[in-house]
């Protein structure tokens, strides 16, 4: 049996991935974006008073950073939608769990 596969051809045993470069432009743009948001985080921390709105902004910025890291750096934007969905859909439930337990944690203060 010949297991030798020509480059670029799919084979379950000798898989040769496609080696396609998207260039470094998008990567550097993502880097400057992440750096900019981190600096903005730093500035907002000192400029704004500690309110719920500030926390909301920090969490929103965290999610934006996550989007760019997963999308551009981890390349998920360019993967098949099948793969993106099995990774992303379960994380939605995590967000629900966090919100629920924050509420429950707050409720503990009424008992204490």
């Amino acid at each position: 049996m010949d297991f030798h596969v020509k480059p670029g051809e799919y084979d379950a045993i000798n898989y040769i991935p496609h080696t396609e470069s998207h260039g470094t432009k998008e990567l550097w743009r993502t880097f400057w974006l992440l750096l900019g948001i981190t600096i903005l985080d730093f500035v907002i921390y000192f400029v704004m008073p500690a309110t719920g709105l500030r926390n909301f902004i920090f969490i929103f910025f965290g999610l934006v950073k996550a989007y760019y890291i997963v999308g551009a750096f981890m390349h998920l934007k360019h993967e098949k939608i099948n793969l993106a969905l099995i990774i992303l859909v379960p994380t939605i439930f995590i967000v629900g769990l966090i919100m629920g337990l924050l509420y429950e944690g707050n409720a503990l203060t009424w008992v204490k």
Binding site: I98, L101, L102, G105, N106, L108, T109, K112
Partner: peptide, 16 residues
């Protein structure tokens, strides 16, 4: 999640 629950249970309380 554990961190968030612990933190929110220590926000404003007369005891803790």
């Amino acid at each position: 999640v554990q961190y968030g629950a612990q933190r929110f249970s220590n926000v404003e309380s007369a005891v803790t």
